[in-house]
Design a protein around this nucleic acid. Structure first.
Length: 840
RNA sequence: GCCUAGGUGGCGGAAUUGGUAGACGCGCUAGCUUUAGGAGCUAGUGCUUGCAAAAGCUUGGGAGUUCGAGUCUCCCCCUAGGCACCA
C-alpha cells in the first residue's frame, strides 16, 4: 500500500487534545498514588511558587517541567511517585502585589490561587492534585503556629531587643538572610538598623549540626558551599592586650596569631562601648565622640565608604604588645566591624593589606615578621603592599626560622600558655529574626500579660489564631503591625492569671510557612494525629523527600531554615531522621533573548501564550532542550518554533503508522539497533537529569526512522514507534498519550468500549534495551601518523581487534602510504577497535 | 580579597577510562514544492588557502607530560554566582 499523508495530521494541534488529557488524567487519578499503600514510594518535590504578580513565568515552568520529567520517568520505572504542588501564598511577596494593585491580600489570594492552579494544570505536570495545600489556609497555618509554640516551649524561640534590619519601604524587620548587600531582598531598598524587640529562633544552637550534616547530603555542591559560607564558622584566637597605665584589657580576635610579633597598633570599631571608658576625662574624649558619630553615619549611608577611605582617630592610649613589649597606639577606625570577632583588631601592617594602608596613612611602624618563600626578607621601607603569603618567621623570638604553617599553631599555644589568649570559634550565622510587622502572615501565637510580666503561648487547642479580615491591612511603618489597630484581635485574657492581656500582633516570617510544608503534603487528606501536623505512619512511608528540585537562590534561606526545623522535630522525637531532603538538585535560570528576565526590562515571559500557540508539550520539550538543566538557558522565539517542527515530525511519523498499518513491518535491523541504542542513552540521561542530551538522542532516533521518506513498507515496526512514544512521554505527555491511545485502537484493532480500563502511556513500563543489538558488526578504525588523523576505514568487528589485520589494511591505504613514503616507522600504537597510530 | 562553577563554530550546546572535536538543534546558503504567506522536503555549512584534489589551523592565553590532550599538571586572563570593612 502506498504511503499517504492526510492533510489533517501534518502538524501538532495541541488545542484539540491537551486539555482533554489533563481532565482525563485527573479523573482517572493517574498521578495520585495510594498514599497509604503505594509499594515503592518516591517523593518527588519541587519548590512551591509564591502566587504573587501576574502569574507563573517561564522560569517557574522550567523548574516544574524539569522536576516533572524526573517524576514521570520514575513512575514509568514502576515507583509510586508522589508529586504534590501548592502555594506559598502568605507573605510579603503576595501582600506587596495585592497592595500594588489596590486589593485586599485575602481577596487577591483567591484570584491568584485560581490563576496559578489553572496555569499549573496547563503545563501538563503529573501533580497529585488531591494533596495540594496553601500556606494561608487556616488548616495549614494552625500548624505553623503550633511549631512556633513548640520552639518556644523548648527555649528555641525567644524575644530580644537588638539592632534589627528594617526595610523602610516594606515597613517591617527582615532576617539577616533577607538582606542582600545591605538591601532588602524584595524591594532593594537600603535597609536601616533599628533597635527593636523581636522574636528570634535559636538557629545558632544548631550551627554545628547544620554544618556537619552537609557532608552527608547529596546536594548540588554550590548550595552546600553557600550554606557553609553563610554559617561561616571561623576558628581563631582571642588575645588580651594590657592598656598602658590603666587596669583595662582589650580583647582582639585573629586567625593569624603568629603575626602578633609584628603587631604595632590596635583599632577599635566606632560602635564599641569600651571607647567611652578609654577616653573618659581625657582631652581626646570630645574628639573621639565626634569621630564615632561621623563614621557611624557614613558607614550607614554608604557601606562601601570604609573601603574607599580608611579613617582613624588616635585616642591617646597605648596597649602593650605581650610578645615584644612595644607600646602600640590605639585608634578608633572606620574599617573595624562591631559584628565580627570582638570589634577590636590587632594590626600587623606588614602582613595585612588594610592594616598596611592604615599604617601608611598615619605613619605607623611596619615590622615584617614573615620572610617570603623566596628567602628575601621584606624591607619595610620599600614595601608597597602587605605580604599575605606563607613563609618563615623572623623577629619572632624562639620561633624565628620556623615555617609559618607550623608557627601559627605553636605561637597560639604559646600565647595561651602565657595567659594572654584563648581559642575561640566565631559564626557568621545569627539567630533567625521571625517577627514581621505586616498583615499577611500567620499571627504569632503568643500572649503577653502585664500583670504576670510574662509571655504565654496560646493553648494548643485554641489554634489556629485566625488572621482577622481587617480593612487597614497596610503596613504602618511605626514598628507596629497592622493587627495592632484591631482591639478585637489583641484583647485577650491571660492564660495564666485570667487578667487583661495582649496578643502578639506581629506575624511570622514567610520562610517559617515553607520550612515544613514537605511534611504536610502527604498528610493533607488524612487527619493529622491531633498531636502533630502529620500522620506518623504516612510520614514514615514518604519522608525524607527523595529528590527536591528548586532554585539555588534559596541556598541560605528556605533550605537552611527547613533543615533547622526538621532537626528540631527530630529532637522532639517526632521524626526519625533530621534532614528533610536527601537529594537537592538546583536547576539553572532562564534568560530571555540574551538578557536577564525582569519586570523593569519588560521581558518576563509568561508561558500562557506559548502554550496556546504551540502547546505545553512543545514548550516543555523546548525548555529542556535549551541546555543542561542545572545551567538554564536562553529563551528565543525561533528556538521554540524549531521544537514545534520536531514534535510535528514525530506526530506525522506516528500517524503514518496509525493510518497505514500496512507500512508496519517486522524487519529493519538498522532501525531496531537505533531503537535499542536510543533506549539505553535516554535512560542513562534521564537518570542523571541530562534532559538536553536525552532529547538529542530521541532526535537522532527519529532521523534514523525517517531516513527513507516516505517510509518504505515494512521498515518500521509497532515497537519502533511505541518505544519512541514511551521515551518522549516524560517530555511531551499530551501528544504521546494521544498517539498511544490511537495506536492501541487502530493498530491493535481493538474496539473502543465504555467499560475499557484506561491504560495511560504514563503508567506503562519504561522500555528496556537488549545489549545484543548494541554491538556493531562493522567498526571504524582511525589511522593516525604521529597522532594526526590521516585516514579511516571500517572493518568487520572481530577483525578490528587484531593488530595484524588492522595494520595490513591501514598500510594498504593510498593516503597513508603517501604520508609514510620515505619514512621509517619507529613505533606502532594499536588500540583494539579504535585506532592505529604510526610514529615516524 | 576568599570560595564555587565555567570559558568549545554565527548562536545554544555534544564529546566513556586521554583515542575521529563540533553530536543534536537554531541560524544561514542553494534547490524543489506551494496561488501567496507560513510550512514542508533535499543538499550544504568550524576557520584559512585553493577551480578542484588537497593542505594548514582550531576547544580563553602560555608552558609541560604523552605516540596522541577539550580532557591530565603548572602559570596567567576572562565570565557568572556566593561571601566579605571578616582581622
Amino acid at each position: 500500500m502506498p504511503f499517504k499523508q492526510p492533510k489533517k495530521v501534518d502538524k501538532l494541534h495541541p488545542e484539540s487534545y491537551e486539555s482533554k488529557w489533563q481532565e482525563k488524567w485527573q479523573k482517572e487519578k493517574v498521578y495520585q498514588p495510594d498514599i497509604k499503600k503505594a509499594p515503592k514510594p518516591f517523593y518527588n518535590l519541587m519548590m512551591f511558587p509564591y502566587p504573587s504578580a501576574e502569574g507563573l513565568h517561564v522560569g517557574n515552568m522550567y523548574a516544574f517541567t524539569g522536576a516533572d520529567i524526573y517524576g514521570r520517568f520514575m513512575r514509568m520505572k514502576g515507583l509510586g511517585v508522589f508529586e504534590p504542588i501548592g502555594l506559598d501564598g502568605f507573605g510579603i511577596h503576595s501582600e506587596n502585589y495585592a497592595i500594588k494593585i489596590g486589593k485586599h491580600p485575602a481577596q487577591q489570594a483567591k484570584v491568584s490561587q485560581q490563576n496559578f492552579y489553572r496555569q499549573l494544570t496547563s503545563i501538563g505536570n503529573g501533580f497529585a492534585w488531591e494533596s495540594k495545600l496553601e500556606t494561608y489556609d487556616p488548616a495549614y497555618y494552625k500548624w505553623t503556629q503550633w511549631i512556633f509554640i513548640q520552639l518556644f516551649k523548648r527555649g528555641l524561640a525567644y524575644r530580644k531587643k537588638s539592632p534589627v534590619n528594617f526595610c523602610p519601604s516594606c515597613k517591617t524587620v527582615l532576617s539577616d538572610e533577607q538582606v542582600i548587600e545591605g538591601r532588602c531582598e524584595r524591594c532593594k531598598s537600603v535597609v536601616e538598623k533599628r533597635e527593636m524587640e523581636q522574636w528570634y529562633f535559636r538557629i545558632t544552637a544548631y550551627a554545628d549540626r547544620l554544618l556537619k550534616d552537609l557532608e552527608t547530603l547529596n546536594w548540588t555542591n554550590k548550595v552546600k558551599v553557600a550554606q557553609r559560607n553563610w554559617i561561616g564558622k571561623t576558628e581563631g584566637l582571642l588575645e588580651d592586650w594590657q592598656i598602658d597605665g590603666m587596669d583595662v584589657k582589650l580583647t582582639t580576635f585573629t586567625t593569624w596569631p603568629h603575626t602578633s610579633w609584628g603587631s604595632t597598633f590596635i583599632v577599635i570599631s566606632p560602635e564599641h562601648p569600651i571607647i567611652s571608658t578609654l577616653v573618659k576625662g581625657t582631652s581626646y574624649e570630645k574628639g573621639a565622640k565626634e569621630f564615632c558619630k561621623i563614621v557611624i553615619s557614613e558607614n550607614k549611608k554608604d557601606p562601601q565608604a570604609a573601603i574607599k577611605d580608611k579613617k582613624g582617630y588616635f585616642i591617646g592610649r597605648f596597649a602593650i604588645n605581650h610578645l615584644t613589649g612595644w607600646k602600640m597606639k590605639i585608634f578608633i577606625a572606620n574599617f573595624a566591624v562591631m559584628e565580627f570577632g570582638t570589634g577590636i583588631v590587632k594590626c600587623n601592617p606588614a602582613h595585612d593589606q588594610k592594616d598596611f594602608e592604615f599604617a601608611k596613612k598615619y605613619d605607623l611602624p611596619i615590622v615584617p615578621v614573615i620572610v617570603p618563600k623566596d628567602g628575601k626578607p621584606l624591607d619595610p621601607k620599600k614595601l608597597d603592599h602587605a605580604y599575605i603569603g606563607e613563609g618563615v618567621m623572623e623577629k619572632a623570638g624562639e620561633f624565628t626560622g620556623m615555617p609559618t604553617e607550623k608557627a601559627k599553631g605553636l605561637i597560639a599555644d604559646y600565647i595561651i600558655n602565657k595567659g594572654n589568649g584563648k581559642k575561640t570559634v566565631t559564626m557568621h550565622l545569627r539567630d533567625w529574626c521571625i517577627s514581621r510587622q505586616r498583615y499577611w502572615g500567620p499571627p504569632i501565637p503568643m500572649i503577653y500579660c502585664d500583670a504576670c510580666k510574662k509571655w504565654y503561648p496560646v493553648a494548643e487547642e485554641d489554634l489556629p489564631v485566625k488572621l482577622p479580615f481587617i480593612k487597614n491591612y497596610q503596613p504602618t511603618g511605626t514598628g507596629k503591625a497592622p493587627l495592632a489597630q484591631d482591639p478585637d484581635f489583641y484583647h485577650v485574657k491571660c492564660p495564666h492569671c485570667g487578667g487583661q492581656a495582649r496578643r502578639e500582633t506581629d506575624v511570622s516570617d514567610t520562610f517559617l510557612d515553607s520550612a515544613w510544608y514537605q511534611f504536610r503534603y502527604p498528610s493533607t487528606r488524612c487527619a493529622a494525629s491531633g498531636q502533630v501536623p502529620w500522620d506518623p505512619e504516612i510520614t514514615k512511608k514518604w519522608l525524607p523527600v527523595n529528590i527536591y528540585i528548586g532554585g539555588a537562590e534559596h541556598s541560605v534561606l528556605h533550605l537552611l531554615y527547613s533543615r533547622f526545623i526538621t532537626m528540631v522535630f527530630h529532637d522532639m522525637g517526632l521524626l526519625d531522621f533530621d534532614e528533610p531532603f536527601t537529594r537537592f538538585y538546583a536547576h539553572g535560570l532562564i534568560i530571555a533573548e540574551g538578557a536577564k528576565m525582569s519586570k523593569s526590562r519588560g521581558n518576563v515571559i509568561i508561558p500562557d501564550s506559548y502554550i496556546k500557540k504551540y502547546g505545553a508539550d512543545t514548550l516543555r520539550t523546548y525548555l529542556m532542550f535549551l541546555g543542561p538543566f542545572d545551567h538554564g538557558g536562553d529563551f528565543r522565539d525561533t528556538g521554540i518554533a524549531g521544537m514545534y517542527k520536531f514534535l510535528s515530525r514525530v506526530w506525522r511519523l506516528a500517524n503514518s503508522v496509525i493510518l497505514n498499518p500496512d507500512t508496519i513491518g517486522t524487519k529493519n535491523l538498522k532501525n531496531t539497533k537505533a531503537m535499542h541504542r536510543c533506549i539505553k542513552e535516554v535512560t542513562e540521561d534521564l537518570e542523571n537529569l541530562r534532559y538536553n542530551t536525552a532529547i538529542a538522542h530521541i532526535m537522532e532516533y527519529v532521523n534514523q526512522l525517517t531516513e527513507n521518506n516516505p517510509p518504505a513498507d515494512g521498515q518500521i515496526t509497532e515497537k519502533h514507534i511505541k518505544s519512541l512514544l514511551l521515551l518522549l512521554a516524560p517530555f511531551a505527555p499530551h501528544m504521546t498519550e494521544e498517539l498511544w491511545q490511537e495506536i492501541q485502537l487502530t493498530v491493535n484493532s481493538k474496539q473502543k468500549t465504555e467499560k475499557e480500563v484506561f491504560n495511560s502511556i504514563h503508567k506503562y513500563p519504561w522500555p528496556s534495551y537488549d545489549e545484543k543489538f548494541l554491538v556493531e558488526d562493522q567498526t571504524i578504525i582511525v589511522v593516525q601518523i604521529n597522532g594526526r588523523l590521516r585516514d579511516s576505514f571500517s572493518i568487520q568487528s572481530p577483525k578490528a581487534a587484531l593488530q595484524e589485520e588492522v595494520e595490513k589494511k591501514a598500510k594498504s591505504s593510498a593516503k597513508v602510504q603517501k604520508h609514510l613514503e620515505g619514512k621509517t616507522i619507529r613505533k606502532t600504537v594499536f588500540v583494539p577497535g579504535k585506532l592505529i597510530n604510526f610514529v615516524v
